[in-house]
Simulated assay, not measured.
Amino acid sequence: MNDTRQFHLLAGLATGRDARSDDAIYQSLWEAIVEHRLSPGARLPEDALAGAFGVSRTMIRRVLQRLALEQLVTLRTHRGAQITSPTPSEARDVFRARRLLEGALLTEVVGNIKPADLQALAQIADQEHHASREQAIRLSARFHTRLMAMAGNASLSEALSQLISRTSLIIAVYGRGQAGCPCEHHTLIKLLETHDLAALQKWMHEHLTGIEASLDFTASGDALPDFEHLFGHHREQNAS
């Protein structure tokens, strides 16, 4: 898998994707997972997905393997793929890792950030204000991924993008209500304008800790979603 390509998709930097390309199908499935339209434990049969998207099972298999590397999908021998059900212990580990990595990367972000970067972040934060809970989870992931891209450290940013994806799944599953107030990201933008590293790192630690503390760990069931309803428009779009 091309980690840089995945990172650009999550940050909202990729454009011009064909509706039946690997990237477009990956993005559609990723959004359906983090917006909780596909629930943890849901089975992902290759033939059903191939029919819904109007593509080959080989292409679907490649996309599922990409999602499995991010630990959003679990591949089981003789049982196929299903949406990963993160455990409470795994969720805490992910948040702990994010606090460490994002706090460290802020040092480089402060040294690199430009007015255009702040404007891009503000646009995402504005969209969060008008988004549904599910859309807000996706936009929050985009905000944090875009922020970490400003560090200029591709290796760490790409590793963090996987943690952000896993966090989105965790919040979609265990979150109660909105995943933090959208105004919190505007507060971060104001702090970025001051270049106050200590205040930024304190904010990030409290922000992620607050989201983790709001989680309500409960079990999820196993289901077979209506893939035609979720993804059939991709096939129709390419047929027109």
Rank of each mutant, 00 (worst) to 15 (best):
Q6K: 12
F7H: 14
F7P: 06
H8L: 14
H8W: 10
L9T: 04
L9E: 07
G12H: 02
A19Q: 11
R20D: 13
S21D: 05
S21G: 07
D22S: 11
D23T: 11
Q27T: 13
E31P: 01
V34T: 14
L38G: 08
S39Y: 10
R43M: 14
G54K: 11
S56N: 03
S56D: 08
V73S: 10
R76H: 11
R79Q: 15
G80L: 07
T84G: 00
V94P: 01
L100W: 09
E102L: 15
T107R: 13
E108V: 05
P115I: 04
P115Q: 01
A116G: 08
D117R: 07
I124F: 00
E128R: 12
E128K: 08
H129F: 06
A131E: 04
R133I: 11
Q135E: 12
S140I: 02
R142W: 06
R146A: 12
A149P: 05
S157F: 01
S157P: 00
A159F: 14
A159D: 13
L163P: 05
L163E: 04
S168I: 03
I170N: 02
I171P: 07
A172P: 03
G175H: 07
G175E: 02
G175Q: 06
P182F: 01
E184Y: 09
H185Y: 11
H186Y: 07
K190V: 12
L192V: 01
T194M: 06
T194H: 07
L197Q: 11
M204W: 05
H205R: 14
E212P: 09
T218D: 09
A219V: 10
G221S: 13
A223I: 15
A223L: 11
F227P: 00
E228Q: 11
G232F: 02
H234E: 01
R235K: 14
E236L: 14
